[in-house]
C-alpha cells in the first residue's frame, strides 16, 4: 500500500496482440479494502488487464504496482500478495477439494502446521466441508466456483482477483457468492478486484471502472456514475394529458419534456422519489399511473459508449481476441483501434 492508501496503481498499462490494442494505456488506482469493479462487454480488455496484474501476461508497455511490488520486476512478491479466481475453471478435477487446497497451500508456502486449520476455515466459509474429500469432478458448477474462491483465499492474499466470478451460475448461487464476497470484505478487510459484464453485479462494487475497447471511459462509485447520466425519468399517464401538461408547465416552468411520440408526459427530474409525492398532492388532473425509472448502469454504459452491453456481440469479440492472442495476428475489423 502506498501513502495514498492505494493497493493497486497502474501506469499507462498497454497490451497489444499484434496490431490489436487490447488494453490501451490504462491508468487507475484501487484503494485498500474496497471492492473495485471492472465493467465492460466481453473483449473490452478486462481479462487482459487482470492477466497483466496477476503476472500471467507481460505488459507490452507500462506497469503496475500491487501491494508495493512492481508487476514486471517483482513477480514473485506480487504473486504472493494476490489470490486469483479465473474466469474459466482452474481446478484439478481428478483430485479432491482438499487435495486441490493442499497443492495451493504448498505452492504458496503456507507452513505445514497452519495448513489443516486454514483449509478447514476456508472450506467452512464456502460450505464445502462435507464434500471436501470428494473428487472435484463430482461437483456442480457453483460448488467448483466456491472452491476456487476458497482456494484463492487460502494464503490470505492482500488482493483477491475475481474474473467474472459468477459467470454461468444460476441466480441463487450468484446471490450466495456475493454474500461470501461482501462478508469477506467486512471480516478480512481484503481488497477485491473483479471484472464483470453483469450490471447487477457492478452495483455491489464500491467503485467501478467502465472499460470499453481497451480504455477506461469512466471511474466512480455506481451512484455517482448514475447521477452523471441525469435525473430519474418520470412518466405520467393521466385522464387528460393536455390539461396535465398545461398544469405541469405552470407549476414547474423549468421542466423539460422529453420529446417522444409514445410518451406525452415524460420528463427528467432529480430525486424523483421526492418529487412524485409532492406532485400528486395537489395535482388537478386525475393521474392513472406514475412510473419512475432510475438510471441504471446500463444507461450509464449506453450514454458513455452509445451501445448496450450485450453478451452476443461480446462473445464474438472475445473469440477474435483469443484468435489474436493465439496467432499474434489481429482480426481486420477493428480499424479504429489500430496503431
Amino acid at each position: 500500500m502506498d501513502s495514498n492508501g492505494d493497493i493497486i496503481t497502474t501506469e499507462d498499462l498497454v497490451k497489444k496482440f499484434g496490431d490489436l490494442v487490447a488494453v490501451d494505456s490504462v491508468n487507475f488506482e484501487v484503494r485498500a479494502g474496497e471492492i473495485f469493479g471492472f465493467l465492460g462487454p466481453n473483449g473490452a480488455g478486462k481479462t487482459t488487464t487482470m492477466n497483466m496484474l496477476s503476472t500471467i501476461m507481460k505488459p507490452t508497455s507500462g506497469t503496475a504496482v500491487i501491494n508495493g511490488y512492481d508487476i514486471v520486476n517483482h513477480q514473485n512478491e506480487v504473486r504472493e500478495s494476490i489470490g486469483m479466481v479465473f474466469q474459466d475453471p482452474s481446478l484439478d478435477d481428478t483430485l479432491t477439494a482438499r487435495e486441490n487446497l493442499e497443492f495451493h497451500a504448498v505452492v504458496y508456502h503456507i507452513p505445514r502446521a497452519e495448513r489443516a486449520g486454514r483449509m478447514k476455515e476456508v472450506l467452512e466459509m464456502v460450505s464445502l466441508t462435507d464434500r471436501a474429500d470428494d473428487r472435484v469432478e463430482t461437483y456442480s458448477g457453483g460448488m467448483k466456483r466456491r472452491l476456487e474462491i476458497a482456494r484463492g483465499l487460502l494464503h490470505y492474499p492482500k488482493v483477491l482477483f475475481l474474473d467474472e466470478p459468477t459467470i454461468g451460475l444460476d441466480p441463487q448461487t450468484r446471490y450466495h457468492i456475493w454474500e461470501y464476497i461482501e462478508d469477506l470484505k467486512k471480516r478480512e478487510g481484503i481488497t477485491i478486484f473483479l471484472t464483470t459484464h453483469y450490471m447487477e453485479e457492478a452495483e455491489h462494487c464500491d467503485r467501478i471502472a467502465v472499460i470499453d475497447l481497451g480504455q477506461i471511459i469512466a471511474l466512480d462509485t455506481p451512484e455517482r456514475l448514475k447521477d452523471d447520466v441525469g435525473g430519474d425519468i418520470i412518466r405520467l399517464e393521466t385522464e387528460d394529458d393536455d390539461a396535465a401538461l398545461a398544469e405541469l408547465k405552470e407549476r414547474y416552468p423549468e421542466l423539460e419534456m422529453i420529446s417522444d411520440p409514445e410518451c406525452k408526459l415524460c420528463f427528467e427530474r432529480e430525486r424523483g422519489e421526492e418529487f412524485v409525492p409532492e406532485l400528486i398532492r395537489e395535482f388537478g388532473v386525475k393521474i392513472v399511473s406514475i412510473n419512475i425509472h432510475r438510471p441504471t448502469l446500463d444507461d450509464v454504459f449506453l450514454k458513455l459508449t452509445g451501445k448496450e452491453i450485450r453478451d452476443d456481440s461480446g462473445d464474438r469479440k472475445e473469440a477474435m481476441m483469443k484468435l489474436a492472442s493465439r496467432t499474434g495476428v489481429a482480426p481486420g475489423s477493428r480499424g479504429n483501434r489500430r496503431r
Binding site: 514473485n76 478435477d93 504458496y108
Partner: peptide, 13 residues
C-alpha cells in the same frame, strides 16, 4: 483445463 494458470500464477519458481 486451466490448472496450469493456477500453477503459473503461484509464487512457485
Amino acid at each position: 483445463f486451466g490448472f496450469l494458470k493456477e500453477i503459473l500464477v503461484s509464487p512457485v519458481p
